[in-house]
């Protein structure tokens, strides 16, 4: 059986996910992805009638079990500095990040 996730496709996913792997990790992860896909392929055999809806959740949301819409009120955060203090780098209450890769438009 050929691998669905080829080394090239794997590299593409790794780049999209902003990861980096050594060869041993890459080999393990690609093998596991392909093994999981073999299990997932069982879904192809499930007979799906036209009227089967996709379920984004199990329990239906109804007026009886869901909160009604409420006014969109602004509630101030009571500890913004505590939250900012969690950041790796902050200056003047701004998060600091390194240069963002970009291209100058002509």
């Amino acid at each position: 059986m050929t691998d669905e996730i080829t080394p090239e496709l794997f590299e593409h996913l790794v780049d999209l996910a902003a990861f980096a792997f050594d060869p041993k990790e890459a080999k393990y992860l690609r093998r596991e992805l392909n093994n999981q896909l073999k299990a997932i392929h069982q879904l192809a055999a499930v007979p799906l009638e036209e009227d089967v809806p996709p379920a984004s959740h199990g329990v239906p949301y109804t007026d009886q079990n869901s909160p009604s819409l409420r006014e969109d009120l602004w509630v101030p955060c009571d500890n913004p500095d505590e939250i900012l203090a969690q950041a790796p780098q902050v200056e003047d209450r701004y998060f600091i990040v390194p240069d963002i890769p970009h291209t100058e438009l002509e």
Partner: peptide
Amino acid sequence: QYYQRALKVRSKIR
């Protein structure tokens, strides 16, 4: 093929 199909199978499980 995958995500949308899985959501429908979820309906069948329910």
